[in-house]
Each structure stands twice: as C-alpha cells, then as structure tokens.
Design a binder for these strands. Structure first.
Length: 309
DNA sequence: CTCCAGGCAATTG
DNA sequence: CAATTGCATGGA
C-alpha cells in the first residue's frame, strides 16, 4: 500500500485487466495474482496501484498530485470513468449484430485511458510491424535507461523519459531501446526534439479543443507516424474517442464480422481512410474508437485466443 | 526457412 | 493522384 490512498464507488463494474492490458497501455504489471489482483504502473512521476473489490475501486499512489491534479480527479479522468458504455454501441449495431454485441459484452468494463500524450506518442512509434511483447520491452527499456528512477521501498521503477531526455539521447543508446531499429530511434528523437523545442505542442492537439483530423494531420507530418499510429495517439493519449486505428487485427475483424475490406490489397492512406469511415458508419461517429477497442480486445482474446499481452 | 507482428514511406503507373 | 512495392527486426 502506497502512502496516498483513496477508494471510490463505481457506477459500473470495471474490467481492469482488459483495460490495462488490451494494448492501449504498455507499462502496467500485475503484482499479486491472488484472488484480487493488484495492478501497478508508473504514471508521470508517481507509482500507482489499483485494486478492485466489488463495486469499490482502491487507488494508492506515491504522490498526492499527478500531473498537477489531485489524485482522485486525475485517476477518474485517466481511467475514463466518465465514459458510459451504455451509449457506446449504437442501437442499430445491437440490432444488426446481436451475436457480436453479446460476445463483446464480456468486455464492456473496458475503459479508454487518458494517458500522457508524450508517452503515448513515443510508445506507439515503437509499435509498427512488431508484436506487443516487443513493444512492451521497448517502452520498458526506454524508461529504465532514459527515465528517472523512482523508488518507494521496496519498489523500484522508472518514469517514462520526458521529451528533453529523448531529444538529447545518444542515437546508439536510443537504438538499443528500440528493438535495434535505427530508423525508429532517429524518428523518435526527431519527434522528441520537436516537442522539447515547442515546435510540436501535444496539449494543443487534445480533444475537444482540437479536431481529430487536425490532430492526426499534425502528427503525420513527422517521419514514422502514419495514419494508424496517429489514430492510436489520438485515441489513447489525446482523448479523441472517434479515432479508429486500423491494424492487422482490426482489418481481420472488419472483414470477418462486417464484410468490410479495403479497396486495395495493401492498406494505403486513401483506403485506410475509407475503411475507417465505413467502420464509423457501423459503430457510430462519436465513440467508434472506444467501441472498436472493445471489439479489438474481444477479437484477440476470445476469437483468436491470443495471450500476448 | 518462412511467416507474422497493433505500418510507414519511397517509388511507380 | 492513387496504388504497389520495399523495408526493418525479433520471435514462433
């Protein structure tokens, strides 16, 4: 138990495992695998632990404030507790695809996290053509080697490095953290330099003050960020719940469940946008990203039986 | 050895 | 313009 703790009641049951290990976040760990699991991660400069008992969520932290907000306010926002799953899937979807809706209902306790924009950006730049295992390894290495150490005896962990740290990092050191991919290391450092210099302001790209199309357009100006990665950053770090990232898994379920296929054999910028628009037509413009993330998790866990998270 | 993993960018028609 | 083809790296 960490020094600052609080509990609050939930108006709907959470699925913490699905939320923290569905691929939107890469730093959460399970501490105890007893009947009630405890989840731990470093968020900004705080070690945070979560535990759910019945309808109560117990939170403890090494800091009273996270990212300049009181712990309870920060965590409610971080965990997306304001999003009500009831309105996420349109009635038309429930009627037209009752079996899929029923299957996905096991994951209605999944929430969309509002993570650090910079950490989300760099994390998903590590996520191209690579498995989730290796993404987690890269993010862990970046933190361990380039982030500040944070301790609360006997816990030792590391903050995700800030833009300044990555901007000044030695390219070879960075490469050693990014799966030995020098192009990726170079792209990450360039983006970090843009953020550190103020040329790129991630706060300005957050919803609702910035539109999804403006945010992704800005992000996609940088090498190593295409439509999919921009959408992931928008959805998981910038609060754009209508962003709809299409990866190999989403492509698979869009095809299998809805008969949606890209107009081209390989996904181009154009066919990507077309496919995302067709998905939004089925899942609803407003919450397509959140609905899609639930379907993504359902597809991977229950249909494809993947255990990689 | 081949194929896949939460794609991107340069090149070509 | 739009679409096809290279490319990068580790693990199953």
């Amino acid at each position: 138990m960490l020094p600052f703790s609080l509990s609050f009641p939930l108006n709907a049951p959470l699925h913490l495992e699905a939320t923290l290990f569905c691929g939107q976040a890469f730093r959460w760990e399970i501490l105890s695998s007893s009947s009630i699991p405890v989840y731990q991660a470093v968020i900004y400069d705080a070690i945070v632990q979560l535990k759910q008992q019945g309808q109560m969520l117990h939170i403890s932290s090494t800091s009273e404030f996270i990212n300049n907000q009181p712990l309870d306010k920060f965590m409610k926002n971080y965990l997306g507790l304001g999003d009500l799953i009831n309105g996420v899937f349109p009635i038309s979807f429930q009627q037209q695809y009752p079996d899929i809706y029923a299957g996905a209902s096991a994951y209605f306790g999944l929430r969309l996290l509002r993570q650090s924009p910079f950490e989300t950006l760099i994390s998903f730049m590590c996520a191209q053509g690579i498995g989730v295992r290796l993404i987690r390894r890269q993010v862990a290495l970046l933190s361990k080697r380039l982030g500040k150490i944070i301790t609360f005896f006997p816990i030792t962990n590391y903050e995700f490095p800030d833009a300044g740290a990555l901007a000044e990092a030695d390219l070879e050191a960075l490469k050693a953290c990014t799966n030995n991919n020098s192009i990726r290391a170079k792209n990450i450092r360039a983006v970090a330099r843009a953020v550190a210099s103020g040329a790129l302001s991630l706060d300005d790209l957050c919803a609702p003050q910035c539109s999804l199309s403006d945010a992704r357009e800005t992000l996609m100006r940088y090498n190593g960020i295409g439509g999919k990665i921009a959408d992931c950053v928008c959805l998981f770090g910038l609060g754009h719940l209508n962003a709809f990232p299409i990866d190999t898994h989403v492509r698979q379920y869009l095809d299998a469940w809805f008969g949606l296929r890209p107009s081209t054999t390989s996904l181009t910028e154009r066919s990507y946008d077309q496919l995302a628009e067709q998905a939004r037509a089925i899942l609803g413009e407003r919450y397509a990203g959140l609905a899609g993330q639930i379907l993504f998790h359902y597809w991977r866990k229950d249909v494809r039986r993947m255990t990689a998270f």
